[in-house]
Each structure stands twice: as structure tokens, then as C-alpha cells.
């Protein structure tokens, strides 16, 4: 565990400090917020994919559930932001519990079923018949709690908690058990690992992280539509960033987000007409030559990546 603390201090703490201080020198705070949000999502995805091998294409479902959990708490319970954030987490956890049977599937079947589940949640939320509850397809306005700087700070705390969790998973007995499940669930079960319980806990932790990210996103952006909160690009980006950097590490998803989301913004601002081409080529190259992500460049040579 001492190694986990060391990894957190060397990798996560400088990142957190840099992100806390960045708004003082760079005024596009929303861009910085998006970096934090994708760091949280990538690490949340890492918790389930990196450690158990389950790749949830519909990860955005938890994110959207969190966003709407936050919004409903504000709209109907007049909750202040912090209790509303708790509701965001609870909403995502509840959805995670409902979708737990999906863990009986694996591989592409799980990925597709999860994507379908996220779409189902989106359709329910955006159903005009629920307009009185969710505002249906007409979007929510949370201007009463709009506080971008404060929500930025809370996002940072969520990121810190997520990084601590991943550092723990990397080094704790439970994380090692999850990795054993990922490699061979039958052997892991025979060795005494509680496969179902382990997967379920990782799944719910991952859902909770995405829900909190969704909640803080709703708080920060304050006006959004269902298609914004359930935008599939959240899932795609989180997956690509995690794969690019290297799953099951703390540093990999961080590198993925910093490099790829940074590149995304540079391209989007300077040469948007080439965006899809450049991004597409990068992903093809990644799949062909670095299927285990950037981290594999180092691990191949026998070094440990935090």
C-alpha cells in the first residue's frame, strides 16, 4: 500500500495541484473543467475496464443519470448543490444496480447491451410524457445553483477521490483480485476470489464515479438537454483516452486525456475541417501499433507504470 501512496503523490498530486492553479494563469476555465471531467470519466472507466475487462460502451448512461439526478434534486427538492451531488451519485448507483445483470454477459455482448441500456435511459428521460418530472426533451435550466468556480473545485475533489481509488485498486488485494478475474475468471474463482462480488463492486464504483462526474457537469454547465447529458461522445472519448494511455494504470488514462483531449482542442480551434481525419488516423495507428496504449511502451521493457 505504501507504493500506492507513493504513486499517488508522484503522479496524481502534481496533476491536481496544476489543475487547481491553472485557472489563475489560463482563463478558459470551462476547457480546464472539461479536462477534469474527462480525467474523472477515464479513471472511472479504468476502474471497470482496466481491472475487470468489461468495456461499457454505454458508460455515458451513468453520466447522464448523474446529471439528471443532480437536476431533479435541484428542481424538485430545492436541494443545494452538495446534497444534489449526493443525489447524482445515488442515481448512478441505482442505475448500476439495475444494470448489474448485464455482467452476466461479456465481451462485445456486454458492450452492446450496455450501450442499449444507456439509450433506453436517455429515451425515458427525454420522453415528453415525463415533462413534469424531467422536463422531457426540452432541457433543464439550473441557473439558481450556477457557480462555475465552486463546481470546478468540487470536480477537482472528485478527481482526487477517483485517483486515490485507482491507486488503491492498483496496489490493494481487492484490485489484484479484480485483475485476476480479468485474466481468467475461472482460475480466479478456483483460487478463492469472489468473482461476482468483485465485479459488482467494481461496476458500482465505476457507475458512482461517472454519476458524480455527470452531477458536477450539470452543476457547471447549468443549462442542458437530454442529448447533451447522454451524448455518446462522452463514452467514446473516455474509452479512447483510457485505451490510448493504457488501462489498469493510473498514469495511462491521465496521459490519454492530456494528450488526446489537448489535441482535440488544438485541432478543433485551428483546423477543425481536418479534425475527424486526424483523430481517425490517430485511433487507427493506436489500434495497429499500440493496442495496449502508451503505457505498454514502458511496460514492454520491464518497467512498472504507476
Amino acid at each position: 500500500m505504501r507504493r500506492g501512496v507513493r504513486e499517488f503523490v508522484t503522479v496524481a498530486l502534481p496533476l491536481l495541484a496544476a489543475l487547481a492553479l491553472a485557472p489563475l494563469v489560463y482563463s478558459n476555465e470551462l476547457l480546464l473543467f472539461n479536462f477534469i471531467m474527462f480525467l474523472i470519466l477515464a479513471q472511472g472507466l479504468n476502474a471497470i475496464y482496466g481491472f475487470t475487462g468489461y468495456l461499457p460502451f454505454g458508460y455515458v448512461g451513468f453520466f447522464g443519470a448523474g446529471a439528471y439526478g443532480f437536476a431533479l434534486a435541484v428542481m424538485h427538492l430545492d436541494a443545494t448543490p452538495l446534497p444534489a451531488m449526493a443525489c447524482a451519485g445515488v442515481a448512478a448507483l441505482a442505475l448500476g444496480v439495475v444494470l448489474t445483470p448485464l455482467l452476466r454477459l461479456s465481451g462485445a455482448y456486454f458492450a452492446i447491451a450496455n450501450l442499449a441500456a444507456a439509450q433506453a435511459v436517455y429515451q425515458v428521460i427525454s420522453n415528453p410524457a415525463l415533462q413534469d418530472i424531467t422536463k422531457g426533451p426540452y432541457g433543464v435550466t439550473l441557473s439558481s445553483v450556477f457557480a462555475p468556480a465552486l463546481s470546478y473545485g468540487v470536480a477537482l475533489i472528485i478527481l482526487a477521490a477517483t485517483l486515490i481509488l485507482v491507486a488503491w485498486l492498483r496496489n490493494a488485494r481487492f484490485g489484484l483480485a479484480l485483475q485476476a478475474i480479468r485474466e481468467d475468471p475461472v482460475s480466479a474463482a478456483m483460487a478463492g476470489v469472489a468473482v461476482v462480488r468483485g465485479r459488482t463492486i467494481a461496476w458500482l464504483l465505476s457507475a458512482l464515479i461517472a454519476g458524480l462526474a455527470g452531477g458536477v457537469f450539470a452543476w457547471h454547465i447549468s443549462v442542458f438537454y437530454p442529448e447533451t447529458a447522454f451524448d455518446l461522445s462522452f463514452s467514446i472519448f473516455a474509452i479512447v483516452f483510457t485505451l490510448f494511455g493504457g488501462a489498469a494504470t493510473q498514469l495511462g488514462p491521465i496521459l490519454g486525456v492530456l494528450l488526446l483531449y489537448g489535441l482535440y482542442n488544438v485541432i478543433g480551434i485551428t483546423v477543425p475541417q481536418y479534425f475527424q481525419l486526424i483523430y481517425g488516423v490517430l485511433i487507427v495507428l493506436l489500434v495497429l501499433f499500440l493496442p495496449d496504449g502508451l503505457a505498454s511502451l514502458v511496460t514492454r521493457r520491464g518497467f512498472r507504470v504507476p
Binding site: 505504501r2 501512496v5 499517488f8 503523490v9 498530486l13 491536481l16 495541484a17 487547481a20 492553479l21 485557472p23 489563475l24 457557480a147 462555475p148 468556480a149 465552486l150 470546478y152 473545485g153 468540487v154 477537482l156 475533489i157 482526487a160 486515490i164
Partner: peptide, 25 residues
């Protein structure tokens, strides 16, 4: 060590929170 981490995180949160309060005022 854990206590140091918690202190660092609180400091980071305070910096961000203080900015929020200043921006509101």
C-alpha cells in the same frame, strides 16, 4: 503520509473555492 495527502487536497479545494467566492463578490 495519508494525512499529508488529505491536507494537500483540502488546500487545493480551498484555492478553487476561494476563487469561486471572489468571483461571486
Amino acid at each position: 503520509m495519508l494525512r499529508r495527502i488529505v491536507v494537500c487536497l483540502l488546500a487545493i479545494a480551498c484555492v478553487a473555492g476561494a476563487r469561486g467566492a471572489w468571483a461571486q463578490q
